[in-house]
Amino acid sequence: MKKLLVPVFLMLVLVISACGKGEAPEKEAASGSKEPEFITYQSETGAVEVPADPKRVVLLSGFTGNVLDLGVNVVGVDVWSKNNPTFSKELKDVEEVSDENLEKIIELDPDLIIGLSNIKNADKLKEIAPTVTYTWGKLDYLSQHVEIGKLLNKEKEAQAWVDDFKKRAEATGDEIRGKIGEDATVSVIEAFGKDLYVYGANWARGTEILYQAMDLKMPEKVKEDAEKAGYYTISAEVLPEYAGDYVILSKYSDADTSFEETETFKNIPAVKNGQVYEMKGEGASFSDPVTLEKQLSFIKESFLGN
C-alpha cells in the first residue's frame, strides 16, 4: 500500500507544478507588465544588445555624472572620476579601474561598460560585458547626456533634465548680459601644474554654459587660438592678451600660481576691477549634469551674487 501511495503523490505534485507553470505566462502576457531584459542600442560602431535596466556599470572615461544623475548603479570608474571631489560621496565605495585592468573589471561583474572610443582592449572588454564607446566632442554636452539616457533606457529622464537646464542657463545668461553689457567678454583660464591654458567653447570648466547656453562673448584672441582645438597653452607674459573683461580662473590645488604675483597679472583690467572669479580646478574638467549644475551655481553667484 505504501509503495502505491508514493507514486500517486508524486504524480499529483507534477500535475500541480505543471498547471502552475502553465498559468504564469498567461498572466504575464495578459498584464503586459514584463519589461524586456535587453534593448538594442545604436552605437557609433553599430547595434549593441545592452541591459534594459543595467545594475552594475563600469565607466572607463568619464560620463560618471551622467550615469549617476540618471540613478544607475556604478561599480567601477576611471581614476579621474574617482578623484573628482564632486563625486566623492557617491563613489566612496566604488572601485577605481582602467581599460588595462581586465581582471579587476571581471571581478566587478559588470553588465555594461562605457568609455571613449580610444580605450584600450575594447575587444576583450566586449567579452566581459556589452561595451559602448563614444568619440569625445562628436556630440555637444547636452546631446551627449540624452545619448547616454538612450543607452541606459532613460531617454525621457535625460531629455527632461536637458530641457530644464537649458531654460535655467539661458535665463541666467540674460541676467548676466543685462548686468555686464552685451559686448563684455569672458575668458576661461586654468592653472594646471606649471602651465596656463585658455579654453574655447566646448572644453568643460564652465565653457559650455558661458559660451553656448548663455551666449557670452569670447575675446577675439581666445577665439583665434583656442576655439578650433578647444584649448591653448599660454605663458604668464601674454596672459593680458587673452584676458577678457571678466575671467573665470580655474586653479588646481597644486598648480604653480606665482604668475599672480607679477605686475603683468596685477595690471590686467579684470584683476584691477575685481572681475576674476576663482573656480576649483579639481572636478572642473567634466561636462555632466552633476558638474554642470555645480558650475551654473558658481557662475550665477560670481556674476550676479545670488
Rank of each mutant, 00 (worst) to 15 (best):
E103P: 10
T86C: 08
L112W: 01
K92Q: 08
L112H: 06
G76C: 07
E90H: 07
N83K: 12
S88E: 12
V97A: 02
F38C: 14
Q42D: 15
E44Y: 10
T64K: 05
G65I: 05
Y134I: 13
V97G: 07
D69M: 14
T64Q: 01
L91S: 08
K124G: 11
V67I: 09
Y134M: 12
L60P: 05
N101R: 05
L91E: 03
V79T: 13
K89F: 10
W80M: 13
P85D: 06
R56N: 09
K138M: 11
S43Y: 04
S43L: 08
D109M: 15
N73Q: 13
L125I: 02
W80A: 13
G76F: 01
V67P: 12
L116F: 14
E44G: 13
E44I: 10
G115V: 00
K89H: 12
Y134A: 13
P130V: 05
V75W: 04
S43D: 06
E49P: 14
L59C: 04
P51N: 00
V72T: 11
E90L: 03
V57F: 02
P54T: 03
K124F: 07
L139F: 13
N118L: 14
G71N: 04
T131V: 06
I105E: 02
K92C: 08
L91M: 06
A47K: 11
F87C: 09
L60N: 02
K124V: 07
V77D: 02
F38Y: 13
L125P: 07
I106C: 12
D78Y: 00
V50C: 06
D111H: 04
T64D: 01
K89E: 11
N73P: 15
K126N: 08
L70S: 08
P54F: 00
D78V: 03
V58Q: 02
P130N: 05
K89L: 11
G46S: 01
E49H: 11
L108Q: 06
G65L: 05
K104F: 01
K82E: 05
L59D: 04
T40K: 13
F87A: 10
L91R: 07
I39S: 09
